[in-house]
């Protein structure tokens, strides 16, 4: 049973500039760190089976909101309760080591996702899906950028998370792989109890989500319900 419950959540973050990064200025100067409200009074309940879209302009708080759900940002005030194992695909290159081989990266990434890294069947299915069988033992710095994303995508989506966080819909690789990845994404959104997707593409959000939150200046200004 996965559940997200946010009550009056606000986040205020310090804005660090080169001045405030200096210990000399801190000790001897009159510099004061500025603060910025990035999320204001967020109230939200999400339960199993809900697919939430987040729509907004650049800087409206979409990514900050995902980072809050991922646990990277902690609420300054309010209550944030999240049940269920979270997988965040905010930056899918997370934890990839360019010097290591594709295969070694699969193992590392599985470990960081808390998965069984000895499951050879799972690893094989990742390699097969990525279509990189021939180069899987080469260091990934030798991959083209498309190949790197394909590998990262294949690893990150091989598991079925309870809560899936996505920043922008992923369009990766060449036409073939895009088709493959789109169908896997649809599959994932059907299997994961809760998904949260941020995007500026309203058409796309209406296609996958059953609830869309409109963000502006760090607050939810409207909610749209989409009928299946």
């Amino acid at each position: 049973m996965s559940h997200i419950s946010l009550k009056n959540v606000s986040i205020t973050i310090p804005v660090y500039t080169s001045d405030s990064f200096s210990v000399k200025k801190k000790l001897f100067g009159k510099y004061k760190t500025e603060y910025k409200d990035i999320l204001k009074n967020i109230n939200l309940e999400v339960t199993d089976g809900e697919r939430v879209g987040i729509y907004g302009h650049n800087g409206s708080g979409k990514t900050s909101f995902l980072r809050l759900l991922a646990g990277a940002y902690k609420p300054t005030s309010g209550n944030c309760k999240i049940e269920g194992r979270i997988t965040s695909l905010i930056d899918i290159g997370m934890g990839l080591d360019p010097e290591a081989s594709g295969y070694a990266n699969i193992i590392l990434k599985l470990i960081s996702l808390g998965m069984d890294y000895k499951d050879t069947k799972l690893i094989k299915s990742i390699v097969d899906f990525s279509g990189l069988t021939d180069v899987i033992h080469h260091p990934i710095r030798t991959y083209s950028s498309g190949m790197g994303v394909r590998l990262a995508f294949s690893i990150s989506t091989c598991i079925t998370p309870e809560i899936l966080l996505l920043d922008e819909w992923l369009s990766v690789g060449d036409a073939d792989f895009i088709a493959k990845s789109q169908s896997r994404m649809m599959e994932l959104t059907k299997k994961s109890p809760i998904i949260v997707v941020a995007s500026h593409d309203m058409g796309l959000l209406k296609k996958i989500c059953n609830k869309i939150l409109l963000f502006e200046n760090g607050t939810i200004i409207d909610q749209i319900y989409v009928n299946d």
Binding site: L66, A70, A72, I90, G93, G95, S112
Partner: peptide, 8 residues
């Protein structure tokens, strides 16, 4: 940073 910014 890539870990710290999207995990707890």
């Amino acid at each position: 940073s890539s870990f710290i910014k999207q995990t707890d």
